[in-house]
Simulated scan of single mutants.
Amino acid sequence: MRPIPLILLLASLLSACATGNDPSRSRQIAQSGALKVHPGLLGQEVPSELQPATPVVAAAETGEKPMRMDEEGLRTQRSVYFDLDQAAIKADYDPILQAHARYLASHPQTRVRIEGHADERGSSGYNERLGLKRAQSVRATLLGHGAGSTQVTVKTWGKRKPKLLGRNEEAWAENRRADVIYEQDAGK
């Protein structure tokens, strides 16, 4: 008879423990009748009563809130957030900027100011330039989607107007942004 290697013995003991009838390891769902599955998961058409009231753009992988694309979304989704030391607009913000640009194109009397911001790290001069680059990136995107050049101006605040005070990643991430400020908006 050959001795059983210690690793095989430990592995069999661990698997026996893991597959035991420990109630904390498994949960059963009480359900009567047939299991109901959302039709969208099955590749089928989703009935209107199961669809969201307004289209929502997927949230950024960083855990940001989803962006609403309705009239309320245009009023509430006015900040574009950036990565550290970056002025490139993330793809997640393109749909909301398209919606703002469409609104501006259909309301030529409306004017917006894009205010660029940076977090507190870095010199004042560096953050002023970075805030300006961020504002210019948002402006260029709005113009590219149909907003008029006279409708969109830019301003930089650098690190002077933080949205969230603090010396941690949460505050810094909230302050790396550009805000769309409606200056003249008779339609809203």
Rank of each mutant, 00 (worst) to 15 (best):
D70M: 15
D70I: 14
E71P: 07
E72I: 11
G73C: 12
L74P: 10
L74A: 10
L74Q: 14
R75P: 00
R75F: 03
T76Y: 13
T76D: 14
Q77W: 03
Q77C: 13
Q77V: 08
Q77E: 15
S79N: 07
S79M: 06
S79C: 02
S79Q: 08
S79P: 00
V80S: 00
V80Q: 01
V80L: 02
V80R: 01
V80W: 02
Y81L: 12
F82A: 06
F82S: 07
F82T: 04
F82I: 06
D83I: 02
D83M: 07
D83W: 02
L84P: 03
L84W: 12
L84Q: 12
L84I: 13
L84S: 10
L84N: 12
Q86D: 15
Q86H: 14
Q86W: 08
Q86A: 15
A87C: 07
A87D: 14
A88N: 11
A88Y: 11
A88H: 12
A88P: 03
A88K: 14
I89L: 13
I89S: 10
I89N: 07
A91C: 05
A91R: 11
A91K: 14
D92M: 09
D92E: 15
D92C: 10
Y93N: 05
Y93G: 02
D94Y: 08
D94E: 10
D94I: 05
D94S: 07
D94R: 05
P95F: 11
P95G: 13
P95Q: 13
I96W: 07
L97V: 03
L97K: 06
L97H: 06
L97F: 05
Q98M: 06
Q98P: 01
Q98C: 00
A99S: 12
A99W: 00
A99H: 02
A99R: 08
H100V: 01
H100W: 02
A101E: 03
A101H: 04
A101G: 05
A101P: 03
A101S: 09
A101V: 01
R102V: 00
Y103F: 14
Y103P: 02
L104R: 02
L104T: 04
L104C: 08
A105C: 01
S106P: 05
S106F: 08
S106H: 12
S106N: 13
H107F: 10
H107E: 11
P108G: 08
P108C: 08
P108N: 10
P108Y: 11
P108E: 09
Q109M: 13
Q109E: 15
T110A: 06
T110I: 01
T110R: 00
T110D: 04
T110L: 00
R111M: 12
R111G: 11
R111H: 13
V112H: 04
V112G: 03
V112R: 05
R113K: 14
R113V: 06
R113D: 06
R113M: 12
I114D: 04
I114W: 09
I114V: 15
E115C: 04
E115P: 02
E115S: 09
E115I: 12
G116R: 03
H117N: 14
H117S: 11
H117I: 05
A118E: 00
A118Y: 00
D119C: 11
R121P: 00
R121Y: 06
R121E: 10
G122N: 07
G122D: 04
